[in-house]
Design a binder for these strands. Sequence first.
RNA 1: GGAGAGUUGGCAGAGCGGUAAUGCAGCGGAUUGCUAAUCCGUAGUCGGCGAUAGUCGGCUCCCGAGUUCAAAUCUCGGACUCUCCGCCA
Length: 423
Amino acid sequence: MLSLQFIRKNQDMVLDALKSKKVILNLETILEIDTERRDLIRNVDDLKAKRNKVSQLISIKKKNNENSDEEIKNMRSVSENIKRLDDKLKKKLKKLNSLLLYIPNIFHNSVPSGLSEENNILVREWGKKPDQNKDYKDHVHLCDKLNLTDFSRASKMSGSAFPLYTNLGAKLERSLINFMLDYHIKQHGYSELMPPFLTNREATTTTGQLPKLEDDMYYIESDDLFCIPTAEVPVTNMYANEILRQDDLPLKHVAYSACFRREAGSYGKDTRGLLRVHQFNKVEMVNFVVPSQSYEFLEKLTKDAEDILQELNLHYRVISLCKGDISFAAAKCYDIEVWSPGEQKYLEVSSCSNFESFQARRGNIKYRCNKDQKVHFVHTLNGSGLATPRLMVALLETYQNDDGSISIPKVLQPYMGIDVIKK
RNA sequence: GGAGAGUUGGCAGAGCGGUAAUGCAGCGGAUUGCUAAUCCGUAGUCGGCGAUAGUCGGCUCCCGAGUUCAAAUCUCGGACUCUCCGCCA
């Protein structure tokens, strides 16, 4: 959410964000309602000031046993007017707020222009593509041969695109999660959380999934709760409606969660195996920081995610998303894509974003500044570190051997207890 | 699912129809000056005027509705926390 004051003063930036993020919304309407709002506030505040003054007077007269019938009579009509205007104001505010929730975040000035994927900028690459002459089997083939997943049986209980990991596949999944958690905690100083996987409407609005993306969420109607699409939702809301101490910042949390996405509208795209699934596991990093430092932390957070791929020795690249590719709530975003030898393409395994004060404003997350003792919104950031399905794809494919077995990377061996998966 | 208790400014805690005591902490200032004491100021938010400093006003005692000239205080509805009972992993 942006402040009305900001919108009033920076209409061009807001229009750019609306256009780039493909949000259809009439800014004029919002500004008109805002003007009406301010007029109403002025009127009703004047009346209330009058009421307060006269009430004071009545109180004094009563104490002195003086008659105040005249004042009381006058105040009756004043109060009626106040009520009328307050109702009107409340309706305006409600309408205004519902519109404001649809305004996307504005861009940081380093975000590349352009509306499509091709305009994303390659920031860096790490490692090398594995030997291009080798005959790489894809992960579906490998999982099948080594009994690591069982999609056809999963469909019996949940339908398509819900993974069922089996045997060493399940253990590998668990190992990846534990390795990543342990690594971020030990090497990067994160504190661990295990959050609820269902969140209410309010919390889901804070992070920006609602109201715009409700169709992409799994929803439990009887309790008005949403299955989280990422641990970002519960973790970011941890400090909702709180004023944090500046000395407590930065707060860096890492959390494992299952993630649920309906992927409405993306049927037929990347449907094979683990490439796009409705439920997956992810280790998520969330930062709460002082505004002046948030872009430093975005770089750091992205490196934290990259470290996992480096430890696993997997080839990847980092790209800076252009205006048209950045999500609704983000001001700037890096995607990390790992190389899949089986697919012969890069797969997104992490998205690291700075939301600046966008989520903080929606969730009312503030801190008290040491210097001036005033209260300001924090900046929130988050990034996957990492999501497992595509990581597993790249891992299995990259580490496959000619005899059909799969070597286990060194860092995972303590978790797996073996160094190779074979038939 | 049933019963009870509670929710007040960063924290603690009074007030129970006349417009938020007090204590502590933090921050700012004053004063005295021997590792401290004392005193003063200091919540958030929205709006008006003002270039800024500032200043004036509104709102805010968990949320919402109601009664009243006036609600932290009374009535109704709801959320959350704690305790007990029931059921269940």
